[in-house]
């Protein structure tokens, strides 16, 4: 047993080496963000810019999903609800009352976070598949209600007015680059939030809740409050992403922002890249989103289902072949170098 206890000096050196690693992680991240920020210098094609924007957006949304799903272990398949709240709040405030989307983003986020807390009280009593299916059903109720809500445009949705370009309206009809930096900004924020949570007491609590809730509880971890907090953070950023998407696309309807497919698209990059890791969602999105877009434009146009065949087949293969995510490939290579 004696080998397991660390002296004060050893504890200090472990702590300082962790701090060292985290400083290095920040530097690495800043370098990556700077490289990505420079991409518009070489990418002039509007189609490719579009793909980049969607990739960054889904990286941010999947990172938000990862906060609850990956770190806290609560597999939500209903995040489309929060995405939809963000998209609808932002659109309705802007289109109906000319309120700047910036306020809509924040308000949608807060509303989603409050709803996540309210729904969390009953939902977090459910375990495993019961929890996941309850999240699907709740999101589906939301979808049905919006579908029949005339004030919000019902099935027709909401069209953003054209011709008011600028940073206060978040409308850029001629130039997609501002959207690129907004999406990058959103991803950077979610990355740093995840990073700081990972190193904080909450981060340790959440992982303990994920790995063994009973043991965590016996050690004094507030299991229920941990889940609620993770759900609120996750919902907030998912809704902000939804508001961004609405401004970017300029048109929303219930099925295009709240369908079950979206909920899966938020989870999928994290699962593909590496669930419960800092870079997993980004790696997963960088593979998945360009692939989806390319398949859609080259194989999906005719509606013959070829894009679905390739896409579904790949999702299945990756899930089976690399269950701990693509990121583990990089880590293997990294380990190979250092030894």
């Amino acid at each position: 047993m004696t080998e397991l206890t660390l002296s004060r000096a050893e504890t200090k050196s472990v702590a300082s080496s962790i701090a060292e690693m985290r400083r290095f992680e920040i530097l690495k991240a800043l370098a990556i963000f700077a490289l990505v920020a420079a991409l518009p210098i070489i990418v002039h094609d509007v189609y490719l810019q579009n793909v980049l924007i969607l990739t960054l957006m889904f990286a941010a949304l999947s990172q938000s999903w990862n906060i609850l799903g990956g770190y806290c272990g609560q597999i939500s398949l209903g995040n489309a609800l929060y995405f939809g709240i963000g998209a609808y709040v932002t659109s309705m405030l802007f289109v109906g009352f000319s309120i700047t989307p910036w306020l809509g983003l924040g308000l949608g986020g807060v509303l989603a976070a409050v709803l996540a807390v309210v729904l969390g009280y009953p939902c977090f009593r459910l375990k495993g598949h019961y929890f996941s299916i309850a999240t699907i059903v709740i999101a589906e109720i939301g979808l049905l209600l919006v579908h029949n809500w005339d004030y919000a445009g019902a099935a027709l949705g909401i069209q953003w007015p054209v011709g008011q370009d600028g940073w206060t309206t978040l409308q850029f009809a001629r130039n997609k680059i501002p959207y690129f930096y907004l999406a990058l900004g959103l991803f950077v924020v979610t990355w740093f939030v995840t990073f700081f949570i990972e190193g904080s007491r909450w981060g340790y609590w959440w992982r303990a809740v994920r790995d063994n809730p009973e043991a965590a509880r016996s050690l004094g971890v507030e299991v229920f409050r941990s889940k609620i907090a993770a759900a609120a953070v996750s919902a907030f950023f998912t809704a902000v992403g939804g508001g961004f998407y609405a401004a970017f696309v300029g048109y929303i309807d219930p099925d295009s922002v709240m369908s079950f497919r979206f909920s899966l698209l938020f989870a999928l990059p994290a699962v593909l890249g590496g669930i419960g890791t800092l870079w997993g969602p980004a790696v997963g999105a960088a593979v998945l989103i360009p692939l989806t877009e390319i398949l859609r434009s080259y194989a999906g146009g005719s509606g013959n289902g070829l894009d679905l065949i390739i896409y579904g087949g790949l999702v299945m293969l990756v899930a089976l072949a690399k269950p701990d995510g693509l990121l583990s490939l990089f880590q293997l290579m990294g380990r190979g170098r250092s030894t």
């Binding site: 899966l264 289902g305 070829l306 894009d307 679905l308 065949i309 390739i310 896409y311 579904g312 087949g313 790949l314 999702v315 299945m316 293969l317 990756v318 899930a319």
Partner: peptide, 9 residues
């Protein structure tokens, strides 16, 4: 889920 999409396709 991948299988489901594949079958739909």
């Amino acid at each position: 889920f991948g299988l489901a999409i594949l079958i739909q396709g």
